[in-house]
Design a protein around this nucleic acid. Structure first.
Lengths: 221, 221
DNA sequence: TAGTGAACTGAACAAGCGTTCAATCACGGA
DNA sequence: TCCGTGATTGAACGCTTGTTCAGTTCACTA
């Protein structure tokens, strides 16, 4: 796509998304202006303020991610991010999402919620056809696994990349996702297949003593 | 302990640890100086620079955490943080650790490494006495569970607390840990007890196709 | 008692940040 | 052709940041 095929406003927004994906939300507007090839004042002319620019970036990335075919999402947060990070058109949105999740707040919440909502559908199917075991609290299980999936990846990233503001380019992101799956893919599957405890004593005790779960099924294990 | 029982240097360091625990590493030196009741210049007199102060805080918190009895650590990252956060003397170091983990880099690495090293011992025992199942790669399994434990808690925190720099006091930390266990404790145990997949097809396929794990045992499931 | 050095302060500094704004440029309609 | 409106620039502003430093206080020692 030639540079002139796209609005200046969109070009600024895309440059901002790429810079934030690479360096985090702390990146200065002057760096973004340079990357977009425009002056500092023009950004404020189009977006009003840094917050305005950030909001526009957030919205655009979220819209992009939400339009990804649900098929790609199957397998949960980790598999989805790994798949998206490999596609050139999605590498910036993917890295941007990781930055947004690290920063916390509203966007992180919305990203997690989107993945949870998406997972509910296919997990429901998988439970119905017997591929996955049912849960005492399906919503909580899905949400926990999403938090664990994103969270572990996040930590792996922030340790590998140095500080939280260190630069992370497309190549770095791909290497990172590869390494993550190579190192932990097998034990992740092992964990999800056999669990950790040899007996259900702990679970039974906690279930008997703890507060009532908002049970979605009464199925027995 | 009366204020005069402790050196000024230590008082500054402790104030810095508390402020960083509450507000994150981004907190300004002027805020720390106010909290410690000293002038801005004195901090630089004692610590040379902001980095120097941060290093001193990092070291002190790490030393504190590492001296916690291994008994408290049993149960992994989540259980340990929940237990430590409840003890008044450890509430600041605990919150500080969460901030450090969020910030990434060297300290995060050292904290995770410490928990992993500690877990190796008691997981080894638990596997030996039949409480926990053995793994195809014990080191990776422990590390993954530590990353997942910290990571999920981190995400839960950053979503609940708003932005990553939002204030988090001792009361907030405790409420947060309680809520986390209430919401996810049961499904966490369920997950660790029964796993997720109904069959071992996925695991077997991945194990057959994937690269050789750095297997520590050749036990069969 | 005089002197020495560490603890400590307050003011100033340079650099970076987001924001503002007057001035220019380009271009389509009257 | 002229005019007006939106795009665009560059310089400046105010604020906050970490850092520096000359000067003051004060306890201890020779």
């Amino acid at each position: 796509m030639a540079p002139s095929d796209i609005t200046t406003r969109a070009r600024i927004r895309d440059a901002a998304i790429e810079q934030i994906a690479r360096k985090g939300y702390g990146v200065s507007m002057r760096v973004i202006a340079d990357a977009a090839g425009v002056s500092l004042g023009l950004i404020n002319h189009h977006f009003g303020s840094k917050d305005g620019l950030r909001a526009a970036c957030d919205d655009h990335v979220l819209e992009t991610i939400m339009n990804v075919k649900s098929e790609t999402m199957r397998g949960g947060a980790v598999a989805a991010m790994a798949a998206l990070g490999k596609m050139e058109e999605y590498v910036n949105p993917t890295a941007y999402c990781l930055r947004a999740i690290a920063a916390g707040g509203d966007v992180a919440q919305r990203i997690v919620d989107h993945f949870v909502a998406d997972a509910k559908a296919w997990v429901g199917e998988a439970v119905a056809d017997g591929t996955l075991r049912p849960s005492v609290d399906e919503e909580a299980r899905i949400r926990l696994m999403t938090l664990q999936g994103f969270g572990a990846m996040q930590l792996f990233l922030s340790q590998r990349v140095g500080s939280a503001d260190a630069e992370l380019g497309p190549a770095g992101l791909n290497a990172l996702l590869d390494d993550y799956l190579n190192e932990y893919g097998l034990v992740m599957l092992e964990m999800y297949t056999f669990g950790l405890f040899a007996s259900s004593d702990m679970f039974d005790a906690f279930r008997a003593a703890g507060p009532n779960p908002r049970a979605t099924t009464t199925e027995e294990h």
